[in-house]
Simulated scan of single mutants.
Amino acid sequence: MGRRKEFVREEALRSAMRTFWSKGYDGTSIPDLMHSMCISRSSLYETFGDKQSLLNEAVKYYSELVGEKKRGILANAKSAKQGLTDYFRYHTEAALAENGPGGCLITNLSIFYDYLGDETKTLIEERIETLEEAFYNLLEKGKENGELASTVNSRKTARLLLAMNHGMNVLARVKGNSCIMKDISESIPHLLT
């Protein structure tokens, strides 16, 4: 009978995600991961594979944990302006959470995009495209129900919102200032008037 693993996989994955989120891929060592995940080197490799595979799994986990909630806010919004208000309020809270590394895992990794593996690059591109589509769909819904003028270019505006989303993540990471984030967040729905 093999030795029983002494850790909960999801808890270990969450810890790895937070470590990559905080330190980036290159800044995270195997000992950092072993320490944060509270597992041995052999358990890390047996369960998650190499560091790159663990990063890819952490990105997917982050997308399920944080990304789906954010996209759900946009998809279930009653109106475009309310959806953006709710989204960016939650976005600000998540980016500045006291127990969080600051900003966003996807944004933080994107800064070092050229140094990432191909699968990680693809995962990041997919997450960015998915968020752009969520913004686009919300704006189109706003145009269909008459809330937004038909002249609003939903694609360009979705891309602007995407840039603001990731820019806010960088500000949260660098400044960590809730007043700045709140000012930006509250200004976004007014861009549509």
Score class of each variant (00 low, 15 high):
59 V>Q: 09
9 R>G: 03
67 G>K: 01
91 H>T: 02
78 K>F: 09
158 A>G: 06
116 L>M: 11
28 T>N: 02
39 I>R: 05
102 G>E: 01
24 G>M: 02
169 N>G: 09
16 A>S: 04
193 T>P: 15
33 L>I: 12
162 L>F: 11
38 C>D: 07
103 G>L: 03
71 R>I: 14
150 S>I: 14
172 A>Q: 04
32 D>M: 09
148 L>N: 09
188 I>L: 03
65 L>V: 13
52 Q>V: 15
3 R>D: 03
156 K>E: 09
177 N>V: 00
166 H>D: 15
5 K>P: 07
100 G>C: 06
61 Y>K: 00
12 A>T: 00
162 L>P: 09
171 L>V: 09
69 K>P: 01
73 I>H: 09
40 S>Q: 05
44 L>T: 02
132 E>L: 15
99 N>H: 12
149 A>C: 07
16 A>N: 01
41 R>I: 02
121 K>W: 00
189 P>Q: 03
33 L>K: 05
118 D>P: 15
106 I>S: 03
12 A>Y: 07
116 L>V: 01
177 N>C: 14
193 T>Q: 14
143 K>R: 15
16 A>E: 04
84 L>Q: 05
55 L>G: 08
25 Y>S: 08
29 S>A: 00
25 Y>N: 10
164 M>T: 14
121 K>Y: 09
137 N>F: 12
32 D>K: 07
34 M>R: 13
143 K>H: 04
106 I>F: 13
84 L>E: 05
188 I>Q: 04
173 R>W: 06
137 N>E: 07
156 K>F: 13
188 I>S: 00
25 Y>V: 09
163 A>P: 03
174 V>K: 12
185 S>M: 11
164 M>P: 03
13 L>V: 04
72 G>D: 10
56 N>W: 01
165 N>I: 09
80 A>I: 14
146 G>R: 10
29 S>L: 00
49 G>Y: 05
80 A>T: 15
159 R>N: 06
173 R>E: 06
15 S>I: 01
77 A>I: 10
176 G>E: 05
26 D>Q: 15
157 T>D: 08
125 E>S: 13
121 K>C: 08
182 K>W: 10
109 L>A: 06
39 I>D: 07
66 V>K: 04
66 V>M: 08
188 I>G: 00
69 K>V: 11
28 T>E: 01
84 L>R: 04
